[in-house]
Every structure is written in C-alpha cells, then in structure tokens.
C-alpha cells in the first residue's frame, strides 16, 4: 500500500508539473518579470564596466532606447574611442554602426561590441518572454525558479535558470547555459532601486563566467524613464542619427 501511495504521489507530481495551467503561470510570471524590469517603451543610460583579474577597469557609457518587446537602440557616449557607435536590435536582427567606417553591419548575438563577458544579447537584451518558453518552475521560500528554453536556435543561450525574488518579482540570479548544459555565465541582479514612475528594478547586473576566470563585467543602470518613440527610429536608416534622440 505504501508503494502504491508513493507511485500515485509521484504520478500526480509528474502530471502536475506538465499541466498547461502551470505553464501559463510560468509564462505569466516571466511576462511580469519583464514588465517589472522595464516599461514597454523607455530610455535609460548604462555604464558597462569590464574588470580584469589585476583589477584594472574599462568603462563604456551607453544611451539606450527601447520600444515594445523587441526594438532597442544603444549609442555609445564614452569612451572617446567608441563614441558615436550605435547598435540596433529588431527582434533577432542586430546591426552595429561605426561612424566614419561604414554602413551598419549585421552582428550576431554571441559577439560582443564591448569585449568582456557581456555579449550583444546581454547588452541589447529583449524581453525574456520574447526569446524563451518556460519549461518548468520550482519554488523555494524566497524565490521562484524558472527553467527557460530558447524558442529558436538564434537565441544566444539555449537555456536559462532564473531565480526570481518573490517579494520584488525581479530576477536575483540567472544562469546561462549552452545546449550541452555547460554553464556559460551567471548574471547577478543587485541594488534594487526606485527609478520613479513605478519603475523599481535592480540597478546593477554583475556577471562572471567559468570560461573567463578572474574577469567580471558589470552593468549599472541610471535614469530609466518611460518615453514613447515612433517605430521609424528603430531602422537601419535612422541608426546613424540616433544620438539626436537624447533630450
């Protein structure tokens, strides 16, 4: 009888873990995380800091505008060697424009326009719910753990393990995994900050990677503000003029 009870409990657990209602809950939770991290249309400034094992740092300042779930432009404001560079992401399409050098060229999500551990998909991240499905969910006392699977092959990481803080409903930690299950990097979300207009989110994302031991990359957010943009600015033709968006 005890064995039957155990089998029944196990069967229920398997069925429930694949129940559509739970999947929907996971998807809704992921969408909520996306909205808590940023409004639908906004602008922000970011500083990317690459820290080498000897402690030396390289810093980049970017102005970023985003609209909907899949349109994002970033413009480098500093250092002088990168000034004027801009990137555009439209869903899975990414381009880099380098002033004086040439036309915007297509880049891929695994490349990095700044070096260090952050790659292009980290710097020009779309909403998680655009790129990933929730495969399953676990819970601890303080967090939901979402196991995400990439919707297509062109997404940078095949799987994510996202630990979501139950209280603030924003990520605390994301493990980025390759299809083989190998850990590529871990993103740590820190310093939950009130940016105003109801935007409360981590102001710092820190990352390290077992593939680049001793190195660290940090992304600091500032002045995250709601702002509406027309679709036409998220185009290749507008990209060289994108810096004029700063007010």
């Amino acid at each position: 009888m005890h064995i039957v009870k155990m089998l029944f409990t196990g069967l229920c657990a398997v069925i429930l873990s694949h129940h559509p209602a739970l999947a929907v809950d996971g998807t809704q939770l992921l969408e909520q995380v996306d909205r808590n991290l940023a409004p639908v249309s906004y602008e922000m400034f970011r500083k990317l800091i690459n820290i080498e094992p000897d402690g030396s740092k390289r810093e980049y300042t970017l102005y970023t505008v985003k609209k909907d779930q899949d349109k994002i432009i970033s413009i480098f404001l500093a250092p002088a060697s990168e000034k004027g560079r801009s990137t555009l992401r439209l869903a899975e399409n990414m381009w880099l424009h380098i002033p004086n050098v040439g036309k915007p060229v297509r880049i891929t999500s695994l490349q990095s326009v700044v070096g260090g551990i952050f790659n292009n998909s980290d710097i020009m991240g779309l909403d998680f719910s655009v790129e990933y499905n929730v495969e399953r969910m676990e819970e601890t006392d303080a967090a939901h753990i979402l196991f995400l699977k990439a919707k297509t092959d062109v997404v940078a990481y095949d799987r994510l393990e996202m630990r979501v803080d139950k209280k603030s409903m924003v990520p605390m930690e994301i493990k980025c995994l390759a299809a083989s299950g190998m850990l590529i990097k871990t993103l740590y979300f820190k310093e939950i900050t009130d940016f105003g207009e109801g935007i409360v989110r981590p102001a710092v994302i820190e990352t390290d990677s077992p593939l680049q031991k001793g190195y660290k990359s940090i992304m600091v957010f500032a002045k995250v503000k709601k702002r509406e943009f027309p679709d036409e600015i998220f185009t290749l033709n507008y990209l060289p003029r994108a810096e004029s968006l700063r007010q």
Partner: peptide
C-alpha cells in the same frame, strides 16, 4: 604571465553610480 600574477590577489573594485554624461545633452 603578468596578469596571472596579478590575478592571484583579491579582485576589488568600487562601483561608481554617477554617470556624468547623463546630465545634459
């Protein structure tokens, strides 16, 4: 070689939340 020697120490850094380029266009 120089870097790996330096890497043996503890990585430390200061976070500067000021972004001076933000202030005005």
């Amino acid at each position: 070689a120089a870097r790996s020697f330096a890497a043996s120490g503890e990585t430390s850094y200061d976070l500067d939340f000021e972004i001076p380029e933000v202030e005005s266009k």
